[in-house]
Simulated assay, not measured.
Amino acid sequence: MPTLNLIQHHPAEGPGAIAHWAESRGLTLNVFRADLGQLPPVSADPVILLGGPYESNAGPAWLQAERQWLKGSLEQDAAVFAICLGAQLLALSLGGTVRRLDQTETGWTRVTFSDGQTLKVLEWHEDAIDLSPNAQLLASSEQCAQQMYRAGPTRLGLQFHPEWNAASVAELNAHFGDESPLPRGVQDDAAFAEVFSWLKVTLDAWWLASTGR
């Protein structure tokens, strides 16, 4: 069975809907907890980077180790699908910068793609990415212009969280308590379903470009 490496940065931020996509495609996810010092060997293997409540420009020592690991993997032409903190780490590795937003962007937010399509997605971030010159902007929101970007056919960065499903939100709310700005109570099942449909198509295309299958 094919395998796919996934880097997790926080106990309450797991693969979520990505795990359902992987199962549907017959893929085994190899989950590494970077915050516990776990990283795969530097290689050209495709990898997914998740988010986390950390400062991408500085952060704890293990995050600096991950930045070095990511730099080495990119030098070997690794394909990367990066979300939130992961997208910031990828942008920094590609020559972009990360800065504070004027106001934290949280909850359900509508992003607009370069083809005019829109999608309601979940957000929780206070940083914004300034892209490197060789990166292509793919989506924006009213508050944050850099919501999704591409750097070649196999490197994608997303500031929003398509991997969060209702179970993910419940886990985040339980872990962070009153600090969490995410929705509570009855969840918007239709919105989650629409995001998951988009995520499946997007991951399928990334996986095909990355592996040829």
Rank of each mutant, 00 (worst) to 15 (best):
W124S: 11
H175F: 15
L172I: 15
S132F: 05
K120Q: 11
T154K: 10
L89K: 14
E55H: 12
L70H: 06
T154C: 08
L137E: 12
Q68R: 09
P40H: 10
A128S: 13
L92R: 07
A190G: 01
D189G: 00
A78D: 09
A135H: 10
V31T: 08
V47I: 10
P2A: 13
P2C: 12
A139K: 06
F192G: 04
K71M: 05
R184T: 00
T97C: 03
A12Y: 04
A34N: 04
G185H: 00
D189K: 01
K120W: 09
A167S: 14
E66K: 09
G37S: 07
P2D: 10
A44R: 13
T109P: 08
L158G: 11
L29C: 03
S140R: 09
A79D: 06
L158N: 04
S114T: 15
T109V: 15
Q88I: 03
M148K: 11
M1Q: 12
T97D: 09
V186K: 00
A17W: 01
G16Y: 01
L122W: 11
S132Q: 13
V42P: 06
P183A: 00
E142I: 01
P15W: 02
T106K: 11
P15I: 01
A151D: 10
L70G: 03
E179L: 02
F176S: 04
A61M: 13
T211Y: 10
P2N: 11
D102L: 07
Q136I: 14
Q143W: 02
E105H: 02
V201T: 12
M148P: 01
A34M: 02
L203M: 15
L6T: 13
A44H: 12
S140L: 05
L122F: 12
H9I: 09
T118I: 14
F32L: 01
L6E: 12
D127G: 06
R25E: 08
H10T: 11
Q117H: 15
V47N: 04
V201N: 10
G52V: 10
Q136H: 06
P2G: 05
W124Y: 11
W62A: 13
A135Q: 15
V42C: 14
G86H: 06
H175L: 03
L36W: 10
M1C: 08
G157F: 06
F176A: 06
E75W: 05
V31K: 03
T106A: 15
H10F: 13
H125S: 07
P181S: 01
A167V: 13
L85C: 14
V111A: 10
E105G: 02
G177S: 02
T202I: 04
F113C: 12
